[in-house]
Each structure stands twice: as C-alpha cells, then as structure tokens.
C-alpha cells in the first residue's frame, strides 16, 4: 500500500504548492481549538454549577460572567486581550495564548449555560431521593446529579466545540498563523484562489467532523452509564421498514 503524505510538497501542481502551508495552519488551528476547549470546559463546569447554586452571590457572579462574554464579540475580546491589555497593564500576552484565552472565555460562557441547563434538567425526584438517603450536598452533586446531567451536556457541547473550532479563524486577526491566515497568505502570494478556498472548506469540515465523531463516542459511553442506550440506527430502520 502506498501512503500519501497530504502535507508533502511533492504533491502534484497547486496541491504541492499550497498543502505544506495549509498543514502548518491546520496544526495551529487544532492547537488553538484544543486549548480553547480545555479552558472553555474548565470554566463552564464551575460557572455552570455556580449558576444553579442556592447562594445568590454565586449565581450573580456566574450571571455577570456569562452575560458579559456572550454579549460581546470574540473579535473585540481578542483585541482587548492582545492590544488593549498591554496598554493598561503593561503585560503583553503571547498571541496564541491571548487567542486561546479569548476563545475559552467566550465559549466557556456558552458552555456554562449548557451545564446549568443540564443540571437543572435532572428530575427533582432524584435530588429528593438523595436527600432522603442522607447524602451530603456535595455527594448529591457528585454521585447523583452530575453523572445524569453529563449525558445531557454532550450533544450541545458538541455544537459548542464545533463553534469554537470555526471561531479559531478569528485569531488570524491578531496575526496568528492559523489555517485561515495561511490560506489568505497563499492567495495574496498568487496561488489559485479557488483551490485554496476549496481546500480551506474541506479541511475545516474534516476537523469539525472529527469533533462530531469524538463526541458521538462520548455520548454513547455516557448513555450507557445511565442505561439509556440509544436504539441502533439499523434497528430503527427495520422497525420503520416493517410498517
């Protein structure tokens, strides 16, 4: 079997001319998407839980964060972190780090909403049974509510992660050499526009499809934990065919 390195400069014609650069960009895009997801999830869990808290102050802090970062554009947040912060504090962030941080903060706000919704969707009877069994508030959350809420979180999180992947293209605005940036650079230096833009489409799509596959896997695992195995597609189809 012959394996073809898709990033090789040996590829014929326009591909060999563009793919090495696009691959470099893809790596940066993936890195920022992964970094952004880690920050977003690390923020979403505690903030989402705070938003369901009994304590008014915790809810207020969560609310302010969520509204602020959902209500302003990622691009503007990016400008603030990268350009305005050094002016105010004299502290210059690395551009990729600033980008990843802006993405994480922004998508973390959406993620918090997902976590909050999922936690509230756990039936009240489950919490009450946990109280009746004398679990502590922490134990109720850890052993009863969160495992059940987790299943609900996965599909909307899939959406958010895809959003996040696509939003990484904004990082090119602060000259991070991501996929979109490399693409524009190639076009500006005379590569065939149609080919470059088509390749951009394909690569972004493959990456987001990768996320979907990954999240489907997580979803299946999670569904098994609560004994709610999704009916297999094939089974569903046979039922329909039998009608």
């Amino acid at each position: 079997m012959i394996t073809i390195n898709p990033c090789s400069a040996e590829l014929p014609g326009a591909l060999g001319e563009t793919m090495p650069f696009l691959c470099d960009g893809t790596v940066i895009t993936l890195q920022s998407a992964i970094g952004g997801s880690v920050i977003a999830i690390a923020i979403a869990l505690p903030v989402g839980l705070m938003a369901t808290s009994r304590h008014r102050r915790a809810r207020a802090v969560a609310r302010v964060y969520m509204e602020f970062f959902r209500g302003t554009s990622v691009l503007v947040q990016l400008f603030w972190l990268f350009y305005a912060m050094p002016l105010l504090t004299g502290f210059q962030l690395d551009k990729i780090f600033a980008g990843v941080l802006a993405l994480g903060l922004n998508l973390g706000a959406y993620g918090s909403e997902v976590v909050r919704g999922a936690v509230r969707a756990v039936p009240r009877g489950q919490r009450e049974a946990a109280v009746a069994l004398n679990f502590s508030p922490f134990q109720r959350m850890r052993y009863v509510v969160l495992p059940q809420a987790f299943v609900e979180m996965v599909p909307p999180m899939n959406n958010l992660l895809i959003e996040l992947l696509k939003a990484t293209s904004l990082l090119s605005a602060i000259t991070v050499a991501d996929l979109a940036y490399e693409g524009r650079l190639l076009v500006n230096s005379g590569s065939d526009q149609l080919i470059v833009f088509a390749l951009l489409l394909v690569i972004y799509f493959l990456l987001s499809y990768l996320i979907t596959l990954l999240m489907r896997f997580v979803e299946r695992r999670a569904a098994r934990v609560v004994g709610r195995e999704r009916p297999r597609r094939r089974a569903a189809r046979t039922v329909e065919a039998a009608r």
Binding site: P123, G125, Q126, A129, A132, L133, V144, P147, G227, R228
Partner: peptide
C-alpha cells in the same frame, strides 16, 4: 428517617 417515593426515584446512573 427513610422514605419511599411514589415515583421510586432509583438512580439511573
């Protein structure tokens, strides 16, 4: 005190 509920409320996880 222990309690049994109308809807059972077993933990599905």
């Amino acid at each position: 005190i222990g309690m049994v509920f109308q809807q059972f409320n077993l933990f599905p996880n």
